[in-house]
Each structure stands twice: as C-alpha cells, then as structure tokens.
Amino acid sequence: MRKLIVSPAPHVHGNESTRKIMLDVIIALAPSMLVAVYFFGLSAIMLLAVSVAACVGLEYLIQKYMFKKQPTVSDLSAVVTGVLIALNLPPTAPWWIAVIGAVMAIGVIKMTFGGLGHNIFNPAIVARVFLLISFPVIMTDWTIPTSWFRPGVDAVTGATPLALINEGLAQGQTVEQILAQHDLSYGQMLFARVGGSAGEASALALIIGFIYLLVRRVIRPHIPVTIILTVAVMTGIFWLIDPTRYTDPLFNILTGGLLLGSIFMATDYVTSPMATKGMVIYGIGIGVITVLIRYFGAYPEGVSFAILIMNSIVPLLNKYIKPARFGKEVKHA
C-alpha cells in the first residue's frame, strides 16, 4: 500500500513566505535605489554593494560558525537591511562606514538577540543612529544632487534642508528667508534635488515603493499614515502659531527621511506592533517624538531616534494593546 501523508488541518498553505515578503520589500526599494544610482552614480552602487555584501556575509558567518546552524540568508532579510543601511548613508560616505553599519545592524542588533524575528530594534535604524553619533562629520556631509544629467560628477556638498533650517534659525533668520536663500522648493524635494542620504533623495520614488507594498499587501497603511498625519498636524499647529520660527507641514513631511523611515523602517514587522490599535499608537508616538526632536532637540533630524524610542515600547504595546476580539465577553461560570 502506498504511504499516505497524514497531518492535522489545514492541508493547504497560502504560499506566502518570508523570502517572498523580503523580495517584495526589495522591489519596493528599487525605485529609490535607481534614483540614488542615477544621481550619485558609482558611489551609490558601491555603497549598496558593500552594505548588502557585508550584511549577508556577516549573517552567514555568524549563523554558520557561531550559532552552528544552517544559515538562513536565503530569506533575504539581510539584503533588505543592507539596502536600507546604504540608503541611509550620505552618498559620499566611504565604504567602511557601510561595513561598520552592517556590523552594528547584523552583528550587534540582529544576531545577539537571536536573529530574524527576535531583535527589539530595527537593525538599519540602529546602524544609522550609531553612525550618526559616532561619525557626525561624515554622516552629515550630504551631497546635493546638482543635475539630472551629470550624476554625481561634480556634486556640491552641503547640509540637509532641516540642518539648513536649524542653522539659519540659530542665526536669527526666519524660515522664509532660509528657504529663499538656499533655493528650496517642494518640487525639488519631491524629485530629488535636495541634499540628504541616498534614500531620502526622492520622495516620489519612496511613495511609489509605498504603493507597491500596499498593493502587494506586504504592509498595512496604518503606521506610515499615522506617522505622517501626526507630523502634519503637529507641525501645522506650530506653523500656524509662528510661521517665521517653524517650518510648514509639507516641508516636514518631504524632508529628513520621514518618508523613508515611516514607510520602510517603522513598518519593519519584527519591531512594530501586531494589532491595529497598537500600530496607530506606535505611529502617533513616532510622529510626536520626531516633531519634538526637530523643533526643540539638538539634532535637526528626529525620525531615526523616534523610531528607535518607539521600537523599545513595542513589546509593551503587544502585551497590553490587544486586537478587537470577536463577540462580547459574557459572564460565564
């Protein structure tokens, strides 16, 4: 008699896999990668390659020789981390910065906690913050994409719009004066003509990736939408109070990696809440902390810190914010 397979129900599977999800995230990041390569040319390609290779290689080595188990790099999660690290670096950053970022992200944050699924913090965010604090000069030496047709050849180095604003305000200028002085317009921010990390260069590319993730049902819109709405509402209030001291909402949304952070890093499965209500609280928290850091903190940019801080309370959110259950509780014996 042939041997039949026996197992408990269900007997079919929806064909989703970790690998497919990660591949979708990589595809969603493709527009941003292409924009980065287009503007910054070889240096962007080099950063992407080094960062991905370092992340994947490190994960492989640690799993194989320290954990002594079958490496799971084929799930592509390390590739996603690598791409995100590269997109968070200034395009002019030296290659070893990417390696240090990878060591921090994979070696320290992901693997010490037990690998994929166990890390408390988003590895790419930690890498970015770690590098920002450790190498402030390199990490804030942003390149302004000068031309659509001369990728990275004679790029002008400068500061990010948010840093320019912070500097200007410190010198007693008004927001309007600063914007005019540095020739900053929304069109430029949307289509990548402002200084910033490789991934922040084009808001449009990030939004295309966001739409792709939504269509493929990889992420749900709750976290990015609440972050952006919170930032818009909070900055809107400040801006209405004093437009000379505070930047307007649209400016805040389009700059400083808010889109990159909220779409690709705050939504990281492992470090974001499971229940819808928890997601909303998490999103609001990131938005509020971002605005507070931007307006009142020492750093011009707050998204990374905000995500990091909110990452740390995700276990609490998962514990106390439960999904809506079906049907009311009735008293029973």
Binding site: L4, V6, S7, P8
Partner: peptide
C-alpha cells in the same frame, strides 16, 4: 513498518489526537 507518513508538528500528543499513529 510505517504505513503512513506523518507530516504534522513533531509532537506525540498532536499526532495522537489526530490518529492511531503512522
């Protein structure tokens, strides 16, 4: 001899609730 191939979780308890055994 094995007469079926068990494909569920590796737990005697789960296997036992499912059927007589493989």
């Amino acid at each position: 001899a094995r007469t079926t191939q068990y494909d569920g979780s590796s737990s005697c308890r789960i296997m036992n609730t499912l059927y007589g055994g493989d």
